[in-house]
Design a protein around this nucleic acid. Structure first.
Length: 593
RNA sequence: GGACGUAUAGUGUAGUUGGAUAUCACUCUGGCCUUCUAAGCCGGCGACCCGGGUUCGAAUCCUGGUACGUCCGCCA
């Protein structure tokens, strides 16, 4: 509870001086109380023991006796060597109803003049539909975009389109050379496409890609295909307009299909940047020339060039190749050009990458440093696997995001139909879509990114206490109260705040607990944003919803047809916090469910 | 073989960067709907991978194991 820190320091400072503690290291020792029942902030007194030649609990007791309670901190206790400070419930209530808790705006509408950041995420090869593994990137990335906006940062989200690599070349080759019957024939032993996605281009065209991959492993034809593909890749790297246009015609519909899926998850981009841009505009060759002049530069027998990053902290294989023997660039080289361009747009860069990119990212980062640039911040995530093992498009054991979203929606619809018999089909569909997509997002966000997890249908479709619907449900309760009060002619806006303040209210314990969560809301947000860990804020929102439920149980806003204005004020502000927080996580705040 | 990451109740997870009786949820179990949506609330059971070290104090830091994941292409 950072808001009371200055007040704690103020009363603590003279007391510590009296004991003979003069330097101010103690300020950094004040931390949120681990035992929430004991206090909001605590000072562990163990470190003073030696200097003062006293037992920690004696020191805590002594300090306690030297400090008087005040209006803000109305409880100071000492136990087990800790000095605990508790904020006054009345002060917290005043603080909250006076509108001091920053609500924030996850849509970025509140200009705060804070940092501006460019977040690159997803950037998946446009060769097939999203499966839930690939989607972890998009969901983490978009959530980070939203949270930064909620926090007040100016954010630009980018998708880096890989429009010139081998994967796109394979797709383009297949579309130009294979007839539908051939593709069906080659893939005859596979599960056929889900009828629902028959006309969705990412699902359609990925079959051409898969068929080509099969042929590339077929000894009787592979030589000619490899040659044709290599020629296309080579031409694209030399900026051949015709080939690049053919590539674009091949992948753009696929990309559109993929974006349709993301759009359903409320994931959007401000800008798409094509990899080929940095080849055709000459940036890549300029960078390669510059890298050639560096001290750590080296040349292989066939003329390929690399940097030896061993002296820059890279372990294992230290050569980082940036130019092939034939003079062309590599993916990483182009990525360096892209990063330099990104730095020209924005000072703070964040990348969302799978853990398989760790080495590559390190190489790019060290090379950027070599050229005088900063390193981007990177959020790495582990892969999602299936109970049967790794997800692999090749083996056919994938769960497509499109299928997951349909299942989630259907599951939600069944649930709504069961418990809300008075809802219309239109309402049910709307609610089911919101609940399904929100639940899918939240299940991925709530887990720490560096933890690999196993996708299980029953977990993905569990809509109880640890899920988005739980949060959404608390929010609809608050909306329902609001609407009932409106019907009685009382709204939050017309309540006279000054009437609520400076009074000694009866504050039930569950309301006090809710207030405590509310005033730490922005502590959690700032930590989540500064450390690029969306799961921390997901947890905060669960706590907020949970404590709102306790408040809802004990504090009847409307009782015998009369509105308790204090309760209404707290409920409304909590409601706004839940709503903005949900938008920050990409969860749909509903009015009813 | 080397580099990096992960390891917490039966299951899934949190842990504010070294502090108190380790969080939450599922499962199991006992209770709560004639007043604001029971997708909810209240109670019970149950865990820090193994060994050493640093420290007043270690789930957290160091070190050695073990298990799992990822990488170690002039691929992307």
């Amino acid at each position: 509870m950072e808001i009371i820190r200055p007040h704690v320091e103020q009363v603590l400072s003279p007391a510590l001086q009296q004991l003979g503690i003069t330097n101010e290291n103690w300020k950094s020792m004040i931390a949120p109380s681990r035992e929430k029942s004991m206090g909001d902030l605590s000072l562990p007194c163990f470190a003073f023991a030696k200097q003062l030649n006293m037992a920690p609990n004696e020191i805590a007791e002594k300090l306690q006796s030297l400090i008087e309670n005040n209006d803000i901190i109305d409880e100071i206790n000492s136990t087990a060597g800790y000095l605990n400070f508790k904020a006054s419930a009345n002060w917290l209530a005043d603080y909250v109803v006076s509108g001091n808790v920053r609500i924030g705006d996850a849509l970025g509408g509140l200009p705060t003049g804070a940092k501006s950041v460019l977040i690159e995420h997803t950037s998946a090869n446009p060769n097939g539909p999203f499966h839930v593994g690939r989607a972890r990137n998009a969901i983490l990335g978009d959530t980070l975009v939203r949270l930064h906006r909620l926090y007040g940062n100016e954010v630009r989200s980018e998708y880096y389109v890989d429009d010139m690599g081998k994967q796109v070349a394979v797709l383009a080759w297949a579309l130009a050379n294979l007839k539908p019957e051939q593709v069906d024939d080659i893939l005859s032993d596979r599960e056929s496409i889900n009828d629902m996605w028959n006309n969705k281009p990412d699902h359609e065209r990925v079959r051409w890609y898969q068929a080509a991959q099969v042929l590339r492993n077929d000894d009787s034809v592979k030589e000619g295909i490899e040659k044709a593909i290599a020629d296309m890749v080579h031409a694209s790297e030399n900026g051949d307009d015709e080939v690049l246009a053919a590539f674009e015609n091949a992948y753009q519909p696929v990309l559109d299909g993929m974006l349709e899926t993301l759009n359903r998850l409320r994931i959007n981009f401000d800008e798409f940047t094509k990899e080929s841009l940095f080849v055709t505009n000459g940036d890549v060759s300029k960078i390669m020339e510059k890298l050639s002049t560096l001290e750590i530069h080296g040349v292989a027998d066939n003329g390929a060039e690399y940097l030896d990053l061993g002296t820059r902290g890279l372990k294992g294989k230290t050569e980082f190749y940036f130019r092939r023997g034939d003079g062309s660039s590599l993916y990483a080289t182009r990525d360096i050009a892209y990063h330099i361009w990104k730095f020209s747009q924005c000072n703070n860069l964040i990348n969302i990458l799978g853990e398989d990119h760790k080495l590559q990212s390190k190489q790019v980062s060290l090379t950027l440093n070599e050229l005088g640039y900063d390193s981007p911040e990177v959020l790495f995530y582990s892969f999602i696997k299936l109970p049967e093992g790794k997800m692999s498009t090749r083996k056919g054991n994938v769960v497509f995001m499109d299928d997951l979203l349909e299942e989630a929606k259907a599951h939600a619809a069944n649930l709504v139909r069961e418990i809300r018999t008075d809802y219309s089909d239109v309402e049910i569909t709307e609610i089911a879509e919101a609940v399904g997509t929100s639940a899918v997002r939240f299940n991925i966000i709530k887990v720490s990114p560096d933890k690999g997890f196993t996708f299980r249908w029953e977990e993905a479709l569990a809509f109880d206490s640890d899920s988005a619907p739980f949060i959404m449900y608390s929010h609809t309760r608050s909306r329902s109260i609001s609407n009932k009060c409106l019907a009685l002619g009382i709204t939050f806006d017309i309540i006279d705040n000054s009437k609520l303040q400076n009074e000694n209210h009866e504050i039930p314990n569950s309301m006090y607990e809710l207030l405590r969560v509310m005033v730490t809301h922005n502590d959690a947000l700032s930590k989540s944003v500064e450390q690029n860990r969306p799961n921390l804020f997901a947890n905060q929102l669960l706590n907020l919803a949970n404590s709102y439920n306790g408040f809802y149980r004990d504090c009847k806003v409307i009782s015998n047809g009369k509105v308790n204005e204090m309760y209404l004020a707290v409920s409304e502000i909590a409601s706004k916090l839940m709503k903005s927080g949900m938008i920050g996580l990409g969860i749909s705040p509903l009015e009813q469910m």
